[in-house]
C-alpha cells in the first residue's frame, strides 16, 4: 500500500476517469482527467491498483473499462431496436459509443440513459446537401430515435389503466350550449409527434421480427398513447392532428376549432361532420383524462 492512503474521492475520480475513457484504460490512465487526481504512469500503475497472481493491474482495470461501454451500449440496443435495424449493429454501436461520451449518465436509473439520444444524433448529423436528390435518410434515423425514446417514456409514465380516463359517452353529457367552453384534459402519456417518414410502421415491423426496408418519405402525424400497459400509436390526418394539438395546448373546444379553421383549409361544415367521430375514437383510445367546463370536471 501507499504510505498514506490517498483520499477516497481522489481514488474514485481517478478510477472513473480511467474506466470511462473512450480509448481504454491505458488511455484513461494517461489522460489529464485521471492524472489531475492521481499522477501515475502506466508503468507505475501498481502504486494504485495491485496485481493478482493471474492478472496484471491493467488487465484487472480493463474488466471495468470494457464493461462500462459494453453494458450501456447494450441498454441502448435494447431500447432502440428499429434504429439499430435501420443502420446495422456496427454503425449503431458507433453512434451509441459517441453518445455515451457526449452525454454520460447523471441518473441513478438506466431509464434516463437515452434521454438525449435523438438530440445527439441531430447535433452530430452532417449538414443536409441541398443539391442531393432523394430522401433525407439521416432525418429518418433521427425520427426513429425520437419515436423509440418516446415509446420508453410513455411505457413508464402514468397511464389510463387505473380507469381515470374519459369514457365514451361522457362528452355527450355536456349540454350543447356549453360545448364551446369545454376543455379536454389529456392523459399525461399522450404525445403528438410529426415525422417526415412513417417511422411507426417501420418500428412496429422490426418489433414484430420483420425485416422492413426504409420507407419513402411521407408526412406523418402520430398520436401516441397507452392502453392496457402497451404503447399505442395512431397516424392521423393533418386536421385531426391540429385539433388534438390545440386541445393539448389547453384551448377550449370552441377556440380549438377556431384555430384549426385558421391553420388549415378545412371548412367548418367538414370539420363539424368529423369531430363527433374523432371524439368517440379518442375516448376509446383513452387519450383524455377528463372534460372540464368553466374549470369544473364534468366527466
Amino acid at each position: 500500500m501507499s504510505e498514506t492512503p490517498r483520499k477516497l474521492g481522489q481514488v474514485q475520480q481517478w478510477m472513473q476517469a480511467v474506466i470511462m475513457h473512450p480509448d481504454g484504460v491505458v488511455g484513461g490512465i494517461e489522460s489529464t482527467a485521471a492524472q489531475t487526481h492521481i499522477d501515475v504512469s502506466v508503468n507505475d500503475i501498481e502504486q494504485v491498483i495491485k496485481r493478482s497472481q493471474a492478472q496484471n493491474s491493467i488487465e484487472r482495470l480493463q474488466v471495468y473499462g470494457n464493461a462500462y461501454f459494453a453494458r450501456l451500449v447494450e441498454v441502448l440496443r435494447d431500447e432502440f431496436p428499429a434504429l439499430q435495424h435501420a443502420i446495422g449493429e456496427e454503425a449503431f454501436d458507433g453512434f451509441a459509443f459517441g453518445y455515451l461520451q457526449a452525454y454520460p449518465s447523471h441518473s441513478y436509473t438506466l431509464a434516463d440513459l437515452s434521454r438525449n439520444f435523438s438530440q445527439y444524433l441531430r447535433e452530430t448529423r452532417p449538414p443536409a446537401d441541398a443539391e442531393e436528390e432523394g430522401p433525407d435518410w439521416i432525418e429518418f434515423l433521427i425520427d426513429l430515435a425520437a419515436l423509440e425514446r418516446t415509446y420508453s417514456e410513455v411505457f413508464s409514465g402514468p397511464g389510463p389503466e387505473a380507469g381515470d380516463h374519459l369514457k365514451p359517452g361522457e362528452l355527450q353529457e355536456i349540454p350543447p350550449e356549453r360545448w364551446a367552453d369545454a376543455t379536454l384534459i389529456p392523459m399525461p402519456c399522450l404525445r403528438l409527434m410529426k415525422f417526415g417518414f412513417p417511422v411507426h410502421e417501420y418500428a412496429t415491423a422490426v418489433r414484430q421480427g420483420g425485416d422492413p426496408h426504409p420507407p419513402d418519405p411521407q408526412e406523418t402525424n402520430l398520436v401516441i398513447g397507452r392502453r392496457d400497459f402497451v404503447v399505442r400509436r395512431k397516424a392521423v390526418g393533418r386536421v385531426e392532428f391540429e385539433m388534438l394539438s390545440a386541445i393539448v395546448d389547453g384551448l377550449a373546444l370552441g377556440d380549438a376549432i377556431q384555430r384549426v379553421l385558421e391553420q388549415t383549409d378545412v371548412e367548418f361544415e367538414a370539420l363539424a361532420a368529423e369531430i363527433g367521430e374523432w371524439f368517440k375514437t379518442w375516448a376509446a383510445a383513452q387519450f383524455f383524462r377528463a372534460v372540464e367546463v368553466g374549470g369544473a370536471d364534468v366527466s
Partner: peptide
C-alpha cells in the same frame, strides 16, 4: 462520482477513512 453514474458496482479501497 462528480454526479456521473457508471451503472456499475465499483469497488472501494478498504481503509480507515
Amino acid at each position: 462520482v462528480a454526479s456521473l453514474n457508471a451503472h456499475d458496482l465499483l469497488p472501494l479501497p478498504y481503509n480507515e477513512a
